[in-house]
Design a protein around this nucleic acid. Structure first.
Lengths: 341, 341
DNA sequence: ATTTTTTTCGAAAACGTTTTCGATTTTGCC
DNA sequence: GGCAAAATCGAAAACGTTTTCGAAAAAAAT
């Protein structure tokens, strides 16, 4: 049993391929009678257009590419979820690739997607990545492109982000509202934009509240790990600077801090309050439950796809296109680790 | 600047399209001289074959489909990782879809992938799914197909699984080895095969050690959540049956148990030891660190792709194919929650 | 009955590649 | 130089669809 094709249907009905095609696509210039005959036979033979041929002819694949550093992160899996769901709703499928934070891999994967002729690319940059040649090649070829989360401001494309500065300010403000006087910041790596912005937000919040910035209260992660959190917690206790609140770059590290404080019998939040970032699953099941900043990951995915769709439509219709940036609202989730009694 | 094509190169060099194609694909019947000229010009024009045309001609897309219930789970993201990496290594890309445990969605997605004419499909079934028409349509069309993790034994296809019964036995044996005498089991939902198998493994381990099975020590989850764990922990303490060890269906629930024990000042593991399943991220960062069963998720992904590849090659060469099942080894990760002093 | 308009259809080109098979050219050999 | 063998090339079909444009048929108008 061979695959049903337009030709097959045309032959059986004694009409031309053209007419069959038009009948199935509801062109106005085909009579009701033949249209009925065609659709009936198509149904019977389970005809579905050969997508390879359609792709070739229409020069689009209804497929987009997605490159992210790692799915394992709760945040990313939320975004992926949103992208896939929204894409599906609009008739697109998504090819997913992981750069594993390797610039080398990221470059190869961009090339792969371009060769596959995806209709567009959504991407969250790996840590070392910037406005490199592989990104430029996407823009030069005018392949619709949107960045999310880990973006580079140097790259002129649509973006969907959260306002990290604002979110960080709110987190620190929350600590201050809870009565913290001496607030430390465990910041992320040097490069990533969100690491920088959260640091800036931390400083701004201090300034706004008339608290002098003290660089000795800033601890820079060498890696984003549980162990890193444990180490800094140890260091903070040893230094005994009178810190009573900590804003941590992300939940995983914050959980390390909590673990060490638990072990040493430090009262959280009464002695030291801790707030993390990203609302990882673990933050809800740890003791004490960790306060954090919730990023609307699913909504970011939805927004990212819709920005991409906009550009895909513009490019197709040869209309001028200008990149947009949408910033989504974050929310402070206050849990046990900051709610002093 | 148009896209470079074979025709473009052929025209510029004054040779035929055929020869250009052959030169680029290292056919033996083209002279060194022309091959050099062709490759040089191809390089210069950044020629890459139009994959739409290649797909149409070769009838394959070098793309596979992947349907999973949800990426959010740590375990699934590990598998996805393995599948994508191994696929990439072999020149395949993967289209990912999520059924969100909905049979309805799952059916649509299978249809989507078939229409896209992916070269093969890897799938972990949603909870209600079984040997339904949509799965049969995959097999009928002889589309290479492999199931992993949440499988149906009724479906004759390659599978990659872990031996849940054995793994559960080992977990319970570990509790016994640690000196536990009265071991409870918090089991999963009724339907899923792995829930059933782990329960069977629990019973077998008891039997092997001459411990009578007591059905009142088995607690059935209504949902796989942290809160469910808290509830059962509460119930276990209230009932005060002298339970000194608990084997829990999965880490998330086990963490709920630990949280409640912590709150009530129960000594884990000395009063009650707890072991989970799946080695979620959270199990390593909780206090006390949770003992668990590690499933080699990445390796499962690799194995799944390789089984698929085998079938894809067989089908292509019209050779007979027979489905295989590979079962991967699990490992007990003994951490603080079971290591009595 | 003739012309005009409208409706309905189909031929053919195009998308860009792969591959078969026959034709042509070159080389090797006596 | 003549012939066989080997090396090199290209015409053409095929994959299955979409779409343009002109032709034929039917309907309407004169």
């Amino acid at each position: 049993m061979r695959e049903a094709t337009l030709k097959e249907i045309a032959n059986r009905l004694g009409i031309s391929i053209t007419t069959v095609s038009k009948a199935l696509k509801n062109y106005p210039d085909v009579s009701d009678k033949t249209r009925k005959a065609v659709t009936a036979l198509a149904e019977e033979l389970h005809f579905t257009p050969n997508s390879f041929a359609v792709n070739l002819r229409t020069k689009e694949s209804k497929t987009i590419g997605l490159i992210i550093p790692e799915v394992v992160h709760h945040f990313f899996s939320g975004v992926v979820n949103g992208i896939i769901a929204e894409a599906e709703k609009n008739g697109y499928l998504v090819i997913m690739l992981q750069s594993n934070e390797s610039l080398e891999l990221e470059k190869k994967q961009v090339a792969l997607l371009i060769n596959k002729r995806v209709d567009g690319i959504i991407m969250s940059l790996s840590n070392e990545s910037n406005n490199d040649a592989h990104i430029k090649s996407i823009l030069e070829k005018e392949i619709p492109f949107v960045q999310f989360d880990k973006i580079s401001k140097l790259i002129p494309s649509s973006k969907v982000i959260i306002d990290d500065q604002k979110a960080a300010m709110e987190a620190v403000q929350h600590l201050i509202d809870m009565g913290c006087k001496k607030i430390a910041h465990i910041r992320g790596l040097d490069n990533p934009q969100n690491s920088i912005d959260r640091f800036i937000g931390y400083k701004k919040a201090l300034e706004k509240n008339g608290i002098p910035f003290d660089s000795s209260l800033v601890y820079s992660c060498k890696s984003i790990t549980f162990e890193q959190g444990v180490e800094f917690a140890k260091q903070i206790l040893e230094e005994d600077k009178g810190i009573d609140g900590i804003f941590v770059i992300t939940d995983l590290v914050a959980v390390g801090v909590l673990a060490h404080f638990n072990e040493k019998g430090i009262q959280v939040p009464n002695q030291i309050a801790v707030i993390g970032f990203s609302n990882w699953l673990v933050s809800q099941v740890i003791t004490p439950k960790l306060s954090t900043v919730d990023q609307p990951s699913y909504e970011m995915g939805v927004a990212a796809f819709n920005l991409l769709l906009e550009e895909m439509i513009c490019r197709k219709e040869q209309k001028p296109f200008e990149a947009k940036t949408v910033a989504l609202e974050t929310a402070i989730i206050a849990r046990e680790s900051t709610l002093k009694k």
